[in-house]
Amino acid sequence: MDKREVKSVIEALLFVWGEPLEIKEISTVLDLDKKYLKEVLDEMINEFNYYRRGIQIIQIDNSYQLSTRSEHFDFISKLCTPKKDKQLSNAALETLSIIAYKQPITRIEVEEIRGVKCDKSISTLIEKNLVKEVGRLDKTGRPKLYGTTDNFLKHFGLTCLDQLPEIKEIEKIDEDLEDITGEENNT
């Protein structure tokens, strides 16, 4: 199979699958080396971007997915009726941040950091598929451990957790805001 045909098959697989598709699954289906497929996928990403296609291939860890371009949102939203999705509360965002930076982490550990109960926030995050149970701690009661999902990465435009900003960067932003507004930012 020549490279053009490989690209065609990959595009079809990504379209039909809909969700992020791991490179090892693509490798199994096409019976091709993962390293070669990574090169082909990188080339496809560049081609889609160069020709400003209406869709793009996004990478999430070792998975790939077809997606519309964010700059076309206004046009797409005119065609599609967006479902009314409630935004996350500040409590849920705080809980999500703690889980993202400290994962795997138990509910009790999150509550110790936040200083308040967070059952509802964790339930909301699980319902929105931003957080999931990733295991259980090997101690009395076997408390659940939580971590973020691929949907979390996708939602925040990240390919991996290493792209989360450093805590020092966030503290610097808070200090800059404090200097500008003269008010303390309690985030």
Rank of each mutant, 00 (worst) to 15 (best):
Y51A: 08
N129P: 04
K78W: 00
R114W: 00
N90H: 09
T68G: 13
I108V: 11
S121N: 08
N62T: 01
K86D: 07
L125A: 09
T106A: 07
R107N: 07
Q59F: 00
V110M: 09
C118A: 15
L88F: 13
K38L: 08
A91I: 05
Q56H: 12
K128H: 08
A91M: 11
K102R: 15
D85T: 12
K117W: 01
N46G: 15
D61N: 15
E71C: 08
I108R: 15
E71Y: 00
R52Y: 12
C80T: 11
N129T: 14
G54K: 14
V131Y: 02
K84Q: 06
I126K: 08
V40R: 10
E43Y: 07
E43C: 10
I122E: 02
K86F: 01
T95E: 01
K83T: 13
H72Y: 03
I76Y: 10
T81C: 01
R114T: 07
L130W: 05
T106C: 11
I57W: 03
E71H: 02
N46Y: 10
P104A: 11
R52W: 07
Q103P: 11
E71W: 06
R114Q: 14
D74P: 14
T106K: 13
I99T: 13
E94A: 13
L88M: 02
A100N: 10
K83H: 05
D74W: 04
K102T: 10
K86A: 08
Q87P: 05
E94R: 12
Q65Y: 04
R52L: 05
K83Q: 03
Q87I: 00
E39P: 06
Q56D: 11
A92L: 06
N90M: 07
Y51T: 10
D61I: 04
K132A: 07
K120M: 02
E47Y: 03
V40N: 02
I98M: 00
V131Q: 03
K86C: 05
T81I: 15
R69H: 04
Q65E: 12
I55P: 05
D42L: 03
Y64A: 08
H72D: 10
I98Q: 05
L93M: 06
S63A: 15
A100F: 07
T106Y: 12
C80H: 01
Q56P: 01
N62L: 03
D42V: 00
S97V: 06
N90A: 01
Y50F: 15
G54T: 04
L125D: 05
I122K: 04
D85S: 14
Q87W: 00
E111T: 06
